[in-house]
Design a binder for these strands. Structure first.
Lengths: 218, 218
DNA sequence: CGGTCATTGTTCGGACTCCTAACTATTCAC
DNA sequence: GTGAATAGTTAGGAGTCCGAACAATGACCG
């Protein structure tokens, strides 16, 4: 039953990564055009978005880690934002560290630049809802694997959260449960960046993952 | 049956694009580290990969378009590659245009740098095969939508190919058919970059797409 | 033939991205 | 206290990216 294409094609996972890379490429190139209009460049825009998600402020090293760049690059980027009066450096806990915060203007710009990948959202919406949900579920799995491997900074995802109860309601259309808001939910509600997320202890996390990742969800 | 999460969450498509953006971010940052070892930078590596797929050579403007950058940027990038003796400029059809080709060394490096997203391949392989296939299918849909919208250069995909016969074998595990090699295939074999691809005329393309995209494939 | 006009690619100036290496200031550990 | 770790900056260099202005060449038209 093996098709000829199984032997003559590149591996499936390779074609998938190629596809993801193509999307990454266009995101990068769009970021220059789109974010450029708002007067900020891609990395600066990314930094604004990250700072917006951390209203209590963020250290430079943390920002560098999240951006996936070295400390000097982050330092330069922040300096540029400060020069544009979109962010400010406030004293941190130490006298050597500092806390980064957005200014009023920064908030405004951050909201505006958060829209730049809208063209991609439009493309995603050509998938029907159940396909989007399955796609999101697969993305979560991929990102978790990257995180587990140390290839990506730790994300505030449901699947590694203390309040996540996968398949607490088997058979239901909303089979999972969030113990924080005490409500059931489905794959389509999975979050990558929940403000309420708290990392679960290792043992709980592994058990939850095993249960969540089972093919049939059984 | 609407869950509380439907009202308090960001839209599904937005969370999907956020996930794709996160993967794009790590690809970018990895490209600096990984490709840096081979002595080429991300854009240069990307250019090598594109040139490798076009053994007959490529014009500068075409490369710029595929890279998603302006002509000056492409010109600089190519100059860097030529200086490193990884590519060469040969006369084109005109006396103003030129044809870009890889050198022997360039081939070697292109093969090496083609490996850099391997860490992502490893993560993708944590999905079971049927989930990978569904993921690829969804990626194809997204990329097609981007292409249709002019957000991404035209790709050599099965779904827009003259030889593509979606669901020519309904009910079979390999329901589609490629008229070029005259063999059946499945979603998991879909290609994003087939050397044999020839764009189908508009009418055929639309008919094939309608048939392919139908939820049940019926 | 000569005059436009579009095309192909380059150069220029400037801002940003990104790194490693070297540096200052501060804090912690013993 | 002295020395090691930590937080961030500066310096230098290669690369990425753009728009504007430029030289060629080719195409078209009167």
């Amino acid at each position: 039953m093996t098709a000829i294409f199984d032997s003559i094609s590149e591996p499936l996972s390779r074609r998938v990564t190629a596809g993801l890379a193509k999307i990454g490429l266009v995101l990068r190139s769009r970021a220059w055009k789109g974010a450029g209009l708002a007067g900020v460049t891609p990395t600066q825009g990314q930094a604004l978005a990250l700072l917006r998600e951390a209203p209590q402020g963020m250290k430079l090293a943390a920002l560098a880690h999240l951006l996936g760049v070295s400390a000097p690059t982050a330092s330069e980027t922040v300096s540029a934002l400060v020069a544009k009066q979109l962010a400010e450096k406030t004293p941190g806990s130490d006298r050597r560290s500092l806390t980064l915060k957005l200014t009023q203007q920064g908030e405004t710009i951050a909201l505006r630049t958060a829209d730049w990948p809208d063209f991609l959202g439009t493309a995603v919406e050509t998938l029907d809802p159940s396909e989007q949900a399955a796609f999101l579920r697969a993305l979560v799995k991929i990102i978790r694997a990257l995180q587990e491997n140390g290839d990506i900074p730790v994300q505030r995802m449901c699947v590694t959260c203390r309040h996540f109860r996968p398949y607490a309601h088997p058979g239901s259309p909303t089979p999972h449960h969030c113990a924080f808001v005490d409500a059931p939910f489905a794959d389509r509600h999975l979050r990558l960046n929940c403000p309420e997320q708290e990392p679960a202890p290792a043992e709980q996390r592994d058990a939850a993952w095993t249960r969540f990742a089972a093919p049939a969800g059984a």
